[in-house]
Design a protein around this nucleic acid. Structure first.
Length: 781
DNA sequence: ACTAAGACTTGACCTCAATGAC
DNA sequence: GTCATTGAGGTCAAGTCTTAGT
């Protein structure tokens, strides 16, 4: 019999379902982040000892540090709430003033060098003690930093040289120009409008200009290779339903065919080896490869797998294999593990060979030509078959995701382009010429029946333009937000329930950056919610909690079944309305029963062109970054310290958006290691200081340098430690990539003379090329 | 008006290679 | 050299929002 062991999951968050109470366990292991806009003092995470002693706002509770949050609440004296009719105007006036507070409170935020921890966001307080010690050694010379910077630029140089060599090698093979010519040819055929012609002309002009300069050759080569389409310098186009004029590409790369297992690798049924047909064996292999994963401990996963596996079995197999528990996949599992070990152990040459092959493939299939411009494709490989890995309590987890054949694939390209060839002996499902969409290929996935697409990379014009537009909409919201807030505040006392619900929901969306919360099919997806789909069971109302009035306690599973847990003081009319909405309802009833996302979005678009729920998330994320950067950055500090501030600002956004990440198992150990290093460094530094005192005059200078160097190293370690610790369960990447107007970061870098590479990696720089080019240090979101 | 499908963005997870520590 | 750690990049699921269909 196979061991279907109950392995410890590698990651612990996200997989709890709301029905079994698992997520409360998760909460105790540190997942409740307290998030709201920064103007709300962030409460300490009850689950972390470290965090509970830093924030003086919560000083009342210091004595209770070890008491679970829930119990603290009981300890609190419950003041009798004054039942006031919510419709009264003075009631609302009261809120307006607190709203004002919200707008100005941000200026109260402390600088990080400030010793006073009042108001420090909870995560920052975690490293408070250490940060304080750090302050002793405030004046550290720049020597080390400079030398490190040098090192980095040197490696970067090397890197560039390597790349250049590569480029030069490949330069002869493929030229971009012919494609351009082709494009022009097709244009001269008369299909294209002349307005479209403007863009390529501009580009050409630029190239010609360069040719007249001295170092023509190299520059030209580089330019051609990288081909930056500076679309943001072009006139904005009038019709954005047309996504392209010409589109040409090579189609997708399919998953390699299944390679049957070598004969010595056996599947065992009921203790006896059993030969499987290739189709059956392949699916068995999918399962075998997941044997270590938490998935195989889940009933739904096993059931779904079992059902689908049986479908691909031959009649004989189906007759014989009747119990999953009697299946032993151990040898198959071992075989695939061995394979991956082998891959790791390959020589440099072998690895290099594979790399080159992949690059060649990417060169051919990884680019499309849009309106004559070469553009990177995002995902040119079709998803391989496997078992569906739905997250949270997804009802379809473990279902077989079948292999996609060319016969499933629709190709989209322009009529006059070379239509990609299907693999030999195959046909495309369809070739269409739809320039109202941006995808190059599509197919329908069998588990949920949804369409999948091959689309362009974020660095492409098509994606970039949209991204740019997104941030422009968010900026427009900035100029309208006061008015919009006024509108929804007024609606809190609207006669119509539906409008009141809308107004309260909008308040949450604005204040907490919640997602919209579309309705979901419970048969097809995990039970997760957003704002509009919140149910009564997801919030608790506290007239008083932790010294604050009218606190709403949120606890629900959001996107990807990530838990959202937050206690938020709200304004009184909101609180009263919530009470009203929940009257005579059961836990599973919708909180906003008269509201859905389309109604809400319709309303929003009537308030401002292009406004949807999502825009609030973008707006709040970006404005938070900007405010936090202004507050946290100290121009006197060195680059490292500034970067810590940047990360902290970024982190505030990630907290707001509830972007969590699983804490790696190795985290504690890794922190311990760092702490040891810090201790060692401190000793070393102490020694050096003593040496300095004893040193003779001639040697003083030398020893002084050593002390300085050590000081710097010590400090850097500390910063590293702080940053890491604060970051342990917060993921910064998502917000950086999707919510933060990149121009804010670019401007900050310019203003504070921080190299942009420290903030955006290569991919991010490519995606945000438009922002790098556009923003100066004056840029204001 | 309502639902379903389609298109596109957002998001966590995962792999792998580079790097650093020893 | 080995091993652990990190970060980039890739993967693909899960959202949002729009559009099409009835």
């Amino acid at each position: 019999m196979t061991e279907i062991e109950s392995h410890q999951p590698a990651y612990t968050n996200g997989n709890s379902s709301s029905t079994n109470g698992d997520h409360y366990k998760n909460a105790d292991s540190g997942y409740g982040s307290q998030n709201s806009l920064p103007d709300f003092p962030r409460e300490n995470d009850p689950t972390k000892e470290k965090s509970s002693n830093g924030n003086s706002k919560d000083a009342v509770f210091d004595e209770d540090d070890d008491i679970p949050w829930g119990q603290r609440v009981k300890k609190e004296k419950l003041k009798e709430p004054k039942p006031e009719p919510m419709d009264e105007d003075d009631d609302l006036l009261l809120k307006s003033s607190s709203e004002k507070k919200r707008d100005s409170s941000s200026s109260k935020k402390p600088k990080i060098e400030d010793d006073d921890d009042d108001d420090v966001p909870f995560i920052q307080t975690m490293a408070k003690d250490k940060a304080k010690k750090e302050k002793e050694d405030d004046d550290v010379p720049f020597v080390q930093i400079i030398s490190k910077a040098k090192k980095e630029t040197e490696t970067e140089k090397k890197d560039k040289e390597k790349k250049k060599r590569k480029r030069e090698e490949s330069d002869n093979e493929e030229e971009y120009k012919p494609e351009k010519k082709k494009d022009k040819k097709s244009k001269s055929k008369g299909e294209e409008s002349d307005s479209e012609d403007k863009k390529p002309k501009k580009q050409v002009k630029k190239e010609v200009k360069k040719e007249n300069t001295t170092s023509v050759k190299r520059k030209k080569k580089e330019e051609e290779q990288e081909e930056v389409w500076e679309w943001w310098k072009d006139e904005p186009k009038s019709d954005n339903t047309i996504k392209w004029k010409t589109l040409q590409h090579k189609g997708p790369i399919f998953a390699p065919p299944y390679e049957p297992l070598p004969s010595h690798v056996k599947f065992f049924y009921d203790g006896k080896p059993m030969e499987l047909t290739p189709a059956c064996e392949e699916v068995a292999g999918f399962y075998a490869r997941m044997i270590d994963h938490e998935y195989v401990t889940k009933e739904a996963f096993n059931n779904n797998f079992w059902r689908d596996w049986r479908k691909v079995m031959s009649v004989e197999e189906r007759e014989k294999i009747i119990d999953l528990k009697k299946c032993n996949f151990a040898q198959i599992d071992a075989f695939y593990k061995e394979q991956s070990e082998k891959r790791k152990a390959m020589t440099k040459e072998e690895k290099e060979k594979i790399k080159i092959e992949k690059e060649a493939e990417a060169k051919l299939y990884g680019f499309a030509f849009i309106d004559g411009h070469k553009q990177k494709i995002g995902n040119f490989r079709i998803e391989p078959p496997g078992l569906f890995r739905g997250r949270g309590g997804h009802p379809k987890m473990g279902n077989l995701k079948r292999r996609v054949e060319p016969e499933d694939v629709i190709i989209n390209c322009s009529k006059d382009s070379e239509v990609p060839e299907p693999p030999k002996g195959h046909k495309w499902k369809e070739v269409r010429y739809d320039n109202k969409v941006t995808w190059l290929c599509s197919w329908s996935e069998n588990v949920l029946g949804l369409n999948k697409y091959i689309m362009l990379n974020p660095s492409s014009k098509i994606k970039g333009e949209k991204d740019y537009a997104k941030f422009e909409t968010a900026r427009k919201l900035k100029s309208r937000i006061n008015n919009i807030r006024k509108v929804y505040r007024a609606d809190w006392k609207n006669k119509e329930m539906r409008l009141r619900q809308r107004a309260v929901a909008l308040y949450f969306i604005d204040k907490l950056a919640l997602r919209a919360g579309n309705e979901k099919d419970t048969e097809e997806a995990a039970d997760t919610v957003g704002c509009c789909s919140l149910r009564c069971e997801h919030i608790k109302l506290h007239e008083q909690l932790e010294g604050k009035d009218y606190v709403v306690e949120f606890d629900f599973l959001g996107k990807d079944s990530i838990r959202y847990y937050n206690k938020v003081p709200v304004e009184k009319p909101v609180f009263k309305n919530l009470k009203l909405f929940m009257e005579n309802k059961a836990g599973a009833d919708d909180l906003f029963d008269r509201l859905d996302t389309s109604t809400l979005n319709q309303h929003l678009s009537s308030l401002m062109d292009g406004l949807t729920v999502k825009v609030f998330r973008t707006y709040n994320a970006s404005i938070t970054l900007q405010e936090q950067l202004d507050e946290l950055t100290n121009p006197k500090e060195n680059t490292h310290q500034k970067l810590l501030s940047y990360n902290r600002a970024n982190r505030q956004v990630a907290i707001l958006c509830n972007h969590q990440r699983a804490v790696p198992k190795t985290h504690e150990k890794s922190m311990e290691n760092l702490e040891n290093k810090i201790k060692d460094k401190k000793k070393e530094l102490k020694q050096a200081k003593t040496d300095l005192e004893k040193a003779r005059e001639a040697e003083k200078e030398k020893v002084k340098k050593r002390v300085d160097r050590l000081k710097d190293q010590y400090k850097r370690l500390k910063i590293n430690h702080t940053d890491k610790d604060e970051n342990k369960q917060i993921a910064l990447g998502t917000s950086k990539l999707n919510y933060l107007d990149p121009r804010i970061s670019v401007a900050w870098c310019k203003k504070h003379e921080v190299p942009i590479e420290k903030v955006f990696n290569k991919t991010q720089r490519e995606k945000f090329r438009w922002a790098l080019d556009m923003a100066d240090e004056e840029y204001v979101f």
